[in-house]
Every structure is written in structure tokens, then in C-alpha cells.
């Protein structure tokens, strides 16, 4: 029994919790999951008339988990969806940023990004937490 509990703890540790964050001074408080989905699927880019800028991570594992847990899509599905937007002239290819660039980007108000919860910084606030 102890071994099973230990394994569960390890699995939980390996699958770090994903949160969506923004600058503490941004206008948003909490954003529900389906609105996060709409933002990352480019179906909307504003909340309460405020323009939101979503940032994608170049960390493959984090990105895949975000696709799976938050967007409820496989990474290949998400990629295919985005390609459709690109090749119908609607959106450019979405840039992916490493953590250092994400930190810089989040200095701008109303920019949002998904990170591992353990990486959160004092100047950020959580607007969505995957439970």
C-alpha cells in the first residue's frame, strides 16, 4: 500500500500542475477554462473589452500537457487546428517562447501564459488553475 501511495505521489510530482498567469497589474482576475480555450484557439482575443495576448511555451512537455489538460486536444490536433487558421489567412503561425522570454512578455499587461505552478513569480497572479 505504501508503495502505491509513493508511486501516486511521484506521478503527481512528475505531472506538475499547470496554471495560467498574468502580470499582477493586469485587469483580469479569474478566467474560466472555456474562455482560456477560446483565447488559445483564437476564437476571441478580448475579455470585457480588454485585449488579451496569449503566449505559447516552447517547452514541449509543458505545451503538450497544456493542450491535453486545458485545451482538451492532443498537441497534433491543436497544431492541425492552428494550421487551418494560418492557411486560411486568419492568423500567423503562433510563436513559442522559452521561459526567459515568457518572463519578459509577462511584464506587459494583459498578456497571459501557461506555466508550471512551481515556476510562478511574485509579480504574477494566477487567473486559471487546472485541478
Amino acid at each position: 500500500m505504501k508503495i502505491i501511495v509513493l508511486l501516486l505521489i511521484i506521478i503527481n510530482f512528475l505531472n506538475a500542475q499547470i496554471v495560467v498567469v498574468t502580470n499582477k497589474n493586469s485587469h483580469f482576475k479569474e478566467i474560466p477554462k472555456d474562455i482560456i480555450q477560446y483565447i488559445y484557439l483564437a476564437k476571441t482575443n478580448n475579455i470585457d473589452d480588454i485585449k488579451v495576448v496569449p503566449i505559447l511555451s516552447s517547452d514541449e512537455k509543458l505545451h503538450n500537457e497544456f493542450c491535453d489538460k486545458v485545451l482538451c486536444k492532443s498537441p497534433s490536433q491543436y497544431n492541425s487546428y492552428w494550421i487551418r487558421l494560418v492557411f486560411t489567412g486568419r492568423k500567423p503561425i503562433a510563436k513559442r517562447y522559452d521561459f526567459n522570454d515568457v518572463v519578459k512578455k509577462l511584464n506587459e499587461l494583459n498578456t497571459i501564459a501557461y506555466i508550471n505552478k512551481e515556476d510562478i513569480k511574485e509579480e504574477w497572479k494566477i487567473i486559471y488553475e487546472d485541478n
Binding site: N45, N46, K51, S80, Y81, I83, R84, F87, T88
Partner: peptide, 28 residues
Amino acid sequence: SNENIIIKLGKIRTPYYRNSENLNIGYS
């Protein structure tokens, strides 16, 4: 408008079906 509105002028794909606009993009 980067908010809600897009206006196109030119030769435009007719939006009959879901995949009318990306018919030639097999990957999608």
C-alpha cells in the same frame, strides 16, 4: 480590427462548407 471585425476585399473563398476555405490544405 484585432477585436471582433474582419473585412476582406478581393478574390475570396466562398464559405459554403466547414473546410471550403482550407480545401487545398490537406494537413488541416
